[in-house]
Amino acid sequence: MNKINRKVVRTEDLNFWQKLYIPEILKGMKITIRQMFLPKFTRQYPEEKWIPPPSFRGRPVLVEENGKERCVACGLCSRVCPALAIEVQAAETELSKERYPVKFEINMLRCIFCGLCEEACPEEAIVMSKDYELTFFSQEEAIFGKDKLLMPIDELKDRLEFLRKYR
């Protein structure tokens, strides 16, 4: 068996004061203590919430207008979703839009918040919200149906405006 002899090469040897360690520790302490008297950046989450800007991509939601979803169940978001998170089942409605999603589900464990669904939607019916708080106790709980996805249009004004301006 060959024994591997590797010599440790130091680029720089420690000088005397450094070898003593004590002054180095004191230097570190100085930085720490100074921070205690500077202004604080820590946010007291969850007591104190962060409101993201309109460009933020939180969980995708369905736009609810006049008590109805805008969605026509075209399935384009479902097709474009790279994570296969969206499942749509269309059905016929008396409304002039002819079809609506009788079932619309997003598996939040699959969603990667890429925003492609929002981009593909021809009806501006699915948009990225500001909601980033997602916790579940089971896989089933992470599948959001229409009950959790529908969000009144008033709460989404920011985002819709942002999309019109910058997309």
Binding site: A73, C74, G75, S78, R79, A90, A91, E92, R99
Partner: peptide, 9 residues
């Protein structure tokens, strides 16, 4: 078949 599925599914 009306509205049952999109053809690519």
């Amino acid at each position: 078949f009306r509205f049952k599925a999109r053809v690519w599914e």
